[in-house]
Simulated scan of single mutants.
Amino acid sequence: MRIDIITVVPGLLDGPFAHSILKRAEDKGLASVRVHNLRDYSNNKKKQVDDYAFGGGAGMVMMIEPIAHIIEALKSEREYDEVIYLTPDGETFNQNMANELSLKGNMIMLCGHYKGVDERVRQRFITKEISIGDFVLSGGELAAAVLTDAIIRLIPGVLNDETSALTDSFQDGLLAPPVYTRPAVYDGMEVPELLLSGHQAKIDEWRFEQSVRRTKERRPDLMEGKDF
């Protein structure tokens, strides 16, 4: 998988891709993330990528020409399965979407900025619009990092234990159950005895019951339509 991220502030993405699981995926040759400075594709000597909105109003708008130049340049080098625009009014990102995107090959992510992009960018180039929640960030860079992390960790071979991702919260529509590790007793607080019993079937049943209970308590909206 290759992910190309288009941004006006590439420095914001220096950290997330240089460490931990994303770095491991790159080292293993399982995924590649490339960050592109949109200003490098501006026709303007000042590297301008935004301008005033037609019709007036506060804020600047990202211009279509630099975005068109970079997307067309990238597409001339390889095929892309998705061109994603990170925007507050996009479809809300969730685990199912992460699962679907993890099966893709190459993707472009366009980070919104200012008051957003010229609408013609969305009409001509964008195949999917995604939001990470009902709030506004200064730009789409952090959202792009969130998507990239959530997607790449699902690629087989990225995690040391591939079953780990399959037992994360939301994979089965439920929150994950409580987890414990050593010591078995800390300041009078004991690990549930069943987890020390070695009876895997009973442990699995307990974990499922705890997942259902926790989901009902913390995210009752996820229980809609479920019969347990």
Rank of each mutant, 00 (worst) to 15 (best):
I84G: 07
R182H: 11
G188C: 05
E82G: 02
V49M: 09
R78C: 08
L22T: 03
L222C: 08
E217D: 10
M107I: 07
V49C: 06
A145Y: 02
T163C: 03
V83D: 06
K46M: 10
F228W: 15
V35H: 00
I151N: 03
E162T: 11
I151E: 05
E193H: 08
E162W: 09
L147Q: 07
E100K: 13
I203P: 06
M189E: 14
H113W: 11
P177D: 12
V158F: 05
Y80I: 04
Q210S: 05
M97Q: 13
E162Q: 09
G139T: 03
E79I: 11
S102F: 13
G139P: 02
S169V: 11
M63H: 05
K47Y: 12
G55P: 01
I108T: 12
I70G: 06
D172Y: 07
L196N: 09
L101T: 01
P183V: 07
G139D: 12
M97K: 15
V9C: 07
V191D: 02
T181W: 11
E205C: 06
H69E: 12
V185C: 10
R182V: 06
D161N: 15
M223Y: 08
Q123T: 13
M109V: 15
E77T: 14
L38E: 12
I132F: 05
E26D: 11
D4V: 06
G157C: 06
S197M: 11
M63N: 02
E72W: 06
E77I: 11
L22Y: 03
G15F: 14
I71M: 13
P16L: 04
I151Q: 04
K28T: 01
I3Q: 07
G139V: 04
R2V: 02
T148F: 04
G29F: 08
F93A: 10
M62E: 01
L196I: 08
G225E: 08
T163F: 08
A143N: 00
E100W: 00
M223K: 10
T215N: 04
G15N: 13
M62K: 04
Y52H: 14
I84K: 10
V35I: 15
L142Q: 11
D134K: 14
I152C: 05
P178T: 09
K128N: 09
D134S: 14
G15S: 15
F54T: 03
N99A: 11
P177G: 04
L154N: 11
E79C: 09
M60K: 08
F17N: 00
K28V: 02
T92A: 14
S169P: 11
V9I: 12
F17W: 00
D221K: 08
S211T: 08
P192M: 03
Y114V: 09
I151S: 05
D172T: 14
E129C: 00
N44R: 12
I130M: 08
M223S: 09
G157Y: 07
L159E: 04
F208R: 14
K28Q: 11
V117P: 01
L86Q: 02
R122C: 13
R124F: 12
